[in-house]
Design a protein around this nucleic acid. Sequence first.
DNA 1: TAGATTGTTAATCGATTAACAATC
DNA 2: TAGATTGTTAATCGATTAACAATC
Lengths: 217, 217
Amino acid sequence: MTEESKKLPHPVIRRLPKYLARVHELLHAEVEWVSSQELAEALNLTSSTVRQDLSYLDLTGISKRGYETSSLDAALNKELDSSSHHHIVIVGAGYLGCALAVHGSFAGHGFQTCGIFDIDPSIIGSRVGILKVQPMKNLQQIVDKFGVDIGIIAVPAAAAQEVADQLVAAGVKGLLNLAYASIQIPAGVSMLDARILASLQELAYMIKSKNEETADG
Amino acid sequence: MTEESKKLPHPVIRRLPKYLARVHELLHAEVEWVSSQELAEALNLTSSTVRQDLSYLDLTGISKRGYETSSLDAALNKELDSSSHHHIVIVGAGYLGCALAVHGSFAGHGFQTCGIFDIDPSIIGSRVGILKVQPMKNLQQIVDKFGVDIGIIAVPAAAAQEVADQLVAAGVKGLLNLAYASIQIPAGVSMLDARILASLQELAYMIKSKNEETADG
DNA sequence: TAGATTGTTAATCGATTAACAATC
DNA sequence: TAGATTGTTAATCGATTAACAATC
């Protein structure tokens, strides 16, 4: 409440997970120190941006050596709040929802999946990894029981807004929207679009504009 | 080559798919016109930003009515190059790779999945929707046959860079990286990170900072 | 010590917003 | 016509980069 509440610029926030991914690689390779220059090269940034970004973190580098990878890992996790545990529910037990539910690596990074839900009676009750697909009427109960703070929306576009409303009503604090739909949420809740199709479209633009670049002088 | 090559700012590019998602909803609801103000509300932007963004497109609005949804749809698709067909391969036939392979909606938006690959002999040959999991040695052949321009990396982090290299060597022009790893690519190729875990981490930060906001006066 | 690298300030660059004439 | 909305310019705001003193 007193200090520490310097709000990071959004571009910085989006880069933090990329630093974290890189740091995990370095830790895995048992690299103990990394310089801003090396990080910049790995993430396609300038070293200046890297130092500026890391200056927001609870961390200090050392001249001539750089940043200690283990401290960097800790500082990034602290800032991203992925050191504390987050509890997730997934709504929509289609291919994508199920893939995320059984996806092993979330748990290792502080995100525990506590339930998967659907409205289709024919799949309710079926096993998805260690979970069982539940009907929506159980949502509130699971959210309360586990203190779920994040809901993943993995339903068809037409159902996305209604599911968002239900998740918000159940008390979830953040929504990750994978559906191809625009979602409205109240002010106290956070929402992030993470649609693969949108990424493909963005990538297609990047490819096109790179082509044009090479085409003319 | 002559005109038309005004390069859009990256923030604009990232918003275009969101406009497109919204426009699809409007088309579905048979709404024929939409104003910058209405789009702004749906996407949480200012109407000024919306008009600025749309001014990059091959489209003109009409005073008092706004933008025609069907023209907007066409203009967005044209700019994003998702009107022309893109051909995709997926590397990694785990849960996520398979989920994307059978995911119906890509095809309807101009992205056709032409193959799914893995190195695990025990799953090579198994069916994934209408596709069959193929060994990596077939990659080049499929890329050539279909003119594949996009590769999706859906393998464990440790294998991601090698897969990226193979995709680039096969002639793919853009990579969508779903793996929790930093990938290096040559200058002529485009790459976009689209990791669900990174989105969860970003969302966790958003939740945390919204909490702090409300916590102090 | 000399050289490399951080942390931070100031300068530059770019994106968003405000404002308003043009127009339907 | 009057009012609403676009398209665009200029002003503001914010992010990135350059530069350099401090330091290991």
